[in-house]
Design a protein around this nucleic acid. Structure first.
Length: 745
DNA sequence: AGCACGCCGACT
DNA sequence: GTCGGCGTGCTC
């Protein structure tokens, strides 16, 4: 008979095994000097010597003896630590995404700040001291102080006051801006809070719709069960998803729990989160990309201590050490900004679900246009489906008109007769219109009209982008730049033209049709500066401009009550992209941009121009038939064995040495194919990607489809190390390992 | 990943 | 002669 083993003491160990932020998964053993023993346990972030530098690592194991000699000593300890649940999550990330435990642990923690400069504490709250009915009244008196105006508007949006810390930290305003406003008596500093937290919600919506009530009841019972409960909340634009989130979170907080809300990466944090701030006040922590490392650490401490119970932020917020975490919300769950493109290449939606499993949480995925993956799982009852099929206030969905541009193109121009007719009618009626160019980037390249030559980069296989400023031609990958050529470098012709998205040409055309009309254009030339996008969106929302022209940037953030027409140019763009998700993504973006038309009682019009009107997505889009489209799309996915029916993995190899690259890739593929023959995986490639050379590094892609385990992935990575070590110059070959890739670039 | 060591070519 | 390129090996 065995004695019952006492749990190993989680303190006072002589040695610790530490996971380091290097691409090696072995734990390194360090000695803990006597003075640190009380402060080191599993999960503690410690500073340790590695070679001749000091790095931050996380203690994963304790040991009485060292298995490595000579053992070096821990340099220092920190008060940052990973709790046991997050250690488990880091382990899962490491094995699933194929990185070291140290790299995964690092992604779960706030940045390591070396110089812990304590910033002077900003006390009190900043309160609006002038009374205005709408932000428009502020425009004129503050027209010469853009920053002050922006701060006033933000204050107005959040209900009139905000803590000084929020103003200078989260929103990034300098003290000079605050001082300026204090000098003009436009704001005051007050000590106490006027709005009590958790109060604002009932004032905003009188009554919930039937489907909203049903959804909330389902969430409430899931939360009460304390079991892992994944949901897909499918609600059309304007159907009140945020109201559901807010109420569910409020109930969690009321019963002593905490929540995480993930949002896609957007630059409009203050406005987009104003409702959360009004409801949750100081209990809310907002994380965003403009926080400095010190601010991030402070935020982490507030969450860890329980001072903040609700965390709102982009993908990294999924790792927040929230006290008594009960629920994770993933808003706009289809958004591809949830995929981290640097190591570890995790998907925040997957991490949220896995964390939910480990910690028995309710995980609420919300979207107007759910991903095929989530839609599928909801259909298979792996997630519970909640639907909000109607807009709040009963607004009808916009009417969609499809225009076949093969017939209706007006002598090579951008506009069909149909779109021009609708546009003219809308202008006459005083409505606003959005002209959406369905193009990804805003690159303009330089081409010879005599021979077709395109100005390209010396180091990358890509065309150079033309920048009007200084007439430069620049490479987006490596930064290579030169003066834009005035003659073709192949045939010497001077007949060069600048091609690309053409928002400027669209604007020119429209000015021709409607001389003197107010047009806003949103592209690389007009959105320079940090707040460029926001500025243009705000100007458009004043209603003074009848037309806004833009690319995909116009689909995010802000909604415009005055818009009753959306025109889409080149709707088929992207459908021919080498990405199995291209139809899904195109459908989602067209549905989203359509949703911008007509709100608050008015039926909006949407004119979609395309050269591929026969593509299946358009017949479903016309009827706003999301389910119909998804069933068709999932049928195709099944046939081709793509997600969600199979897992995929993109192995992207690169090297400056083409011969070494080819040797290593060929060797790796040969061995992995042999492994795959035993299992169910299928290898596609190797094949050169869309851009076969970047920064003078040649590239090769291999796509792996099938059903593979963490062990299979580990073996494939091991094969790479082996092959690369054996081949001449093999070490020059780099492998970028992307599990569940979102981008195939 | 980062850093040192060491072996080869092309310069003051 | 050495400066510095990158290929290789190692880090508790």
């Amino acid at each position: 008979m065995q004695l019952e083993a006492a749990p190993p003491p989680n303190h006072r160990a002589t040695f610790v095994k530490v996971a380091l932020p290097i691409p090696i998964d072995t734990l390194f053993t360090y000695e803990v000097p006597e003075e640190f023993r009380d402060r080191v346990s599993i999960g503690t972030r410690v500073e340790v010597p590695l070679g001749r530098r000091i790095v931050g690592g996380v203690v994963f194991e304790l040991a009485a003896e060292s298995d490595y000699h000579p053992t070096r000593k821990i340099q220092n300890t920190t008060d940052v630590h990973l709790n046991p649940q997050l250690i488990a999550l880091a382990r899962w990330i490491a094995s699933y995404y194929g990185c070291s435990r140290g790299e995964a642990a690092q992604a779960c923690l706030p940045p390591r700040v070396t110089r812990a400069r304590r910033s002077a504490r900003l006390a009190g709250k900043l309160r609006l001291a002038i009374s205005v009915k709408s932000v428009d009244e502020l425009e004129r008196p503050f027209s010469r102080a853009a920053k002050q105006l922006a701060l006033l508007k933000t204050l107005f949006h959040v209900g009139g006051e905000a803590p000084m810390e929020t103003v200078c930290g989260e929103w990034g305003y300098s003290r000079a801006v605050v001082k300026g406003l204090l000098g003009k008596n436009a704001v005051r500093v007050v000590q106490e809070s006027r709005t009590s937290p958790l109060a604002g919600i009932d004032r905003e919506v009188k009554e919930l719709s039937g489907p909203q009530k049903t959804a909330l009841e389902a969430l409430a019972s899931a939360l009460a069960s304390n079991a892992f409960s994944p949901f897909l909340l499918h609600g059309v634009t304007g159907s009140g998803k945020t109201e559901i989130y807010l109420r569910a979170i409020r109930d969690v907080i009321a019963s002593g729990g905490g929540c995480i809300v993930l949002v896609p990466e957007i630059g409009l944090i203050p406005q987009a989160t104003a409702r959360y701030r009004r409801v949750f006040g100081d209990k809310l922590a907002i994380i965003h990309s403009r926080l400095t490392p010190v601010q991030r650490l402070e935020m982490w401490r507030k969450i860890e201590s329980g001072e903040c119970r609700v965390v709102l932020g982009p993908r990294s917020a999924v790792f927040s050490p929230v006290r008594n975490l009960r629920m994770i919300v993933v808003d706009e769950e289809q958004d591809d900004s949830y995929k981290q493109e640097d190591k570890p290449r995790y998907h925040a939606r997957s991490v949220a679900l896995m964390r939910g499993k480990f910690e028995n949480l309710t995980v609420l995925l919300g979207s107007a246009t759910p991903s095929a993956e989530s839609f599928f799982h909801a259909g298979r009852k792996r997630y519970r489906r909640l639907e909000l099929p109607e807009r709040v206030g009963g607004g009808a969905m916009p009417r969609i008109h499809l225009v076949d541009m093969r017939r209706e193109s007006t002598d090579g121009g951008f506009f069909s007769k149909t779109l021009l007719d609708y546009l003219e009618a809308n202008i006459k009626a005083g409505g606003q219109s959005i002209i959406f160019l369905n193009k990804r980037g805003h690159a303009r390249f330089i081409q010879c009209s005599a021979c077709g030559w395109v100005a390209g980069c010396n180091n990358c296989d890509i065309s150079l982008t033309y920048h009007r400023v200084g007439r430069r031609a620049r490479c987006h990958f490596c930064g290579f730049a030169k003066t834009a050529p005035s003659r073709c470098e192949t045939c010497g012709s001077s007949r060069l033209f600048f091609s690309g998205v053409g928002t400027q040409r669209v604007e020119l055309d429209l000015q021709g049709f409607y001389p003197g009309i107010g047009i806003l254009r949103m592209d690389a030339d007009t959105t320079s500066g940090k707040r460029g996008h926001q500025r243009i969106l705000e100007e458009f929302s004043t209603g003074r401009y009848p037309i806004l022209i833009g690319t995909q940037m116009v689909t995010k953030g802000h909604h415009f009550p005055g818009v009753s027409l959306v025109g889409v140019l080149h709707a088929e763009e992207g459908l021919n992209f080498p990405d199995f998700r291209s139809a899904e993504k195109t459908f989602q973006i067209l549905e989203q941009v359509s949703g911008r038309s007509g709100r608050e009682g008015k039926v909006g019009e949407v004119v979609i121009q395309t050269f591929m009107p026969d593509h299946y997505l358009f017949s479903f889009l016309k009827r706003h038939d999301y389910s119909g489209f998804m069933h068709e799309e999932l049928g195709i996915r099944k046939q081709l064995n793509y997600p969600p029916f199979a897992r995929i993995l993109l192995a992207s190899f690169s090297s400056t040495n083409k011969a070494a690259l080819d040797r290593v890739v060929a060797g790796w593929v040969r061995e992995v194919r042999r492994m795959a023959a035993k299992g169910k995986a299928e290898l596609l490639g190797p094949s050169p990607p869309l851009v076969p050379r970047i920064r003078n590094r040649h590239r090769e892609h291999v796509l792996i489809k099938g059903d593979f385990t963490a062990a299979d992935k580990k073996e494939m990575l091991a094969v790479f190390s082996k092959v690369a070590a054996a081949a001449p110059n093999g070490r020059s070959v780099e492998l970028r390992w992307d599990v569940d890739p979102e981008s195939f670039f």
